[in-house]
């Protein structure tokens, strides 16, 4: 097994862990955290693919590497928005920020 495959498998497990956490953890902040885990797993997967594409002196395919950078910044803005929304909900007196127990309207 090479290092590249190893990190590929690592990414696969990270994504699984993140999905599990997103579903199971009741606290919204933990869901946001889990989303970040999924995101980093996806980026790592892309990094693995980039590394596989190494050729002619470059350690990796620069196209996916560049996309990962864009992706990381986008994921950060998503996190910032989600956290702000959560804090605002908390300040507005939402009951414990529980977001999944409000199906009662239907």
């Amino acid at each position: 097994m090479t290092s590249i495959t190893l990190f590929g498998l690592c990414a696969a497990v990270l994504i699984g862990l993140g999905v599990y956490g997103l579903i199971v953890n009741p606290q919204p902040l933990r869901k946001i955290l889990a989303f970040n885990l999924i995101g980093s797993g996806v980026f790592l997967f892309f990094g693995m693919i980039a590394r596989r594409g190494a050729a002619s002196g470059l350690g990796g395919d620069p196209v996916p590497q560049a996309l990962v950078i864009t992706g990381i910044v986008v994921a950060f803005s998503a996190t910032a928005l989600a956290v702000a929304l959560l804090l605002r909900l908390d300040a507005a007196g939402g009951p414990s920020g529980l977001d999944d127990a409000v199906d009662g309207e239907s």
């Binding site: 997103l22 919204p28 869901k31 946001i32 989303f35 998503a78 928005l81 989600a82 929304l85 959560l86 605002r88 909900l89 507005a92 939402g94 920020g97 977001d99 999944d100 409000v102």
Partner: peptide, 11 residues
């Protein structure tokens, strides 16, 4: 309640 709906939508 709209903030909560927005948070859920975002996730």
């Amino acid at each position: 309640e709209t903030l909560r709906a927005a948070l859920r939508y975002l996730l």
